[in-house]
């Protein structure tokens, strides 16, 4: 554990539901995160990404407008060090693989328990 990994990381939540945002905020792992923005669709997400330069992104894949995979790809291209957790009810494998191949670092299926969220965030912040 060096100082860098203990630093507070900037978080962007991309999900059209506020519920998810608040659940992430309530997570135990949130002590290492600072919410810098949230977005409800892909276009908003890219705007927020450029504006806030987040270190960590949680990303829903089933959104209106731009598709989540494309979003991931663009974010990774802009900032290769960004860590992306897909939080989605996507469930079909090809999409999950596509997300991972596009640069996501993990995924969490909706619905999820507090514990699953904590574990996924811990794995992401490792």
């Amino acid at each position: 554990m060096n100082a860098a990994t203990d630093a507070i990381l900037k978080l962007l939540i991309v999900d059209d539901s506020n519920l998810i945002r608040r659940r992430v905020e309530r997570s135990q792992r949130f002590d290492r995160l600072r919410l810098v923005g949230s977005a409800g669709d892909g276009v908003e997400a890219m705007a927020a990404f450029s504006r806030t330069d987040p270190d960590v992104v949680t990303m829903d894949l089933t959104m209106p407008q731009m598709d989540g995979i494309e979003c991931i790809r663009r974010m990774v291209a802009l900032k290769p060090s960004v860590r992306i957790l897909v939080i989605s009810a996507l469930a079909d494998k090809a999409t999950a693989i596509e997300a991972m191949a596009s640069g996501a670092n993990g995924f969490l299926n909706k619905p999820f328990t507090e514990r699953q969220l904590n574990d996924a965030l811990a794995e992401l912040l490792r």
């Binding site: 539901s17 089933t62 989605s88 009810a89 469930a91 079909d92 999409t95 909706k110 619905p111």
Partner: peptide
């Protein structure tokens, strides 16, 4: 969303 995820899977 959850129903749709299950169905997709």
């Amino acid at each position: 969303n959850t129903i749709s995820g299950n169905a997709r899977r």
